[in-house]
Design a protein around this nucleic acid. Structure first.
Length: 112
DNA sequence: TATTTGACCAAGA
DNA sequence: ATCTTGGCCAAAT
């Protein structure tokens, strides 16, 4: 085999692990993930790096990155296209209107 | 090794 | 309410 796509770093791995903990019908934010990472020894302000980890590597179904949105309730981005993200979220029960998550405060999942 | 970038966030004007 | 600025972090080039 060749051309093995770049190995996942520990940081990315940690991000995916945390995202995996978000149940369907809920969404989380990059900031929350960063905070959760802070407990694991990373910086709590790594929100950017978190988003970066999502966007670079795994558009894969392996990780439900579609459950991650901005802290302001906006969608943020998605490798497969925001439409895809909206569709997936809507399927799980999270309504998105005009690029903004409705009832954001209610569906926002916080890591405890 | 240094610079740039990015799916951010909070605060200021 | 919208736009701009600064900060902060990790990966990519």
């Amino acid at each position: 085999m060749k051309k093995q796509t770049r190995q996942c770093t520990e940081f990315e791995n940690a991000c995916y692990h945390i995202i995996s903990k978000v149940p369907p019908g809920r969404v989380t934010t990059y900031g929350e993930i960063a905070k959760a990472l802070a407990k694991r020894g990373y910086s709590k302000n790594a929100s950017r790096a978190v988003g970066g980890a999502m966007g670079r590597n795994p558009f894969a179904p392996k990780v439900p990155c579609h459950r991650v949105v901005c802290s302001n309730g906006k969608l943020g981005g998605y490798n497969g296209g925001l439409k895809r993200k909206i569709s997936l979220l809507g399927k799980e029960g999270v309504l998105v209107s005009n690029g903004v998550v409705e009832n954001f405060g209610s569906v926002l999942w916080k890591f405890k």
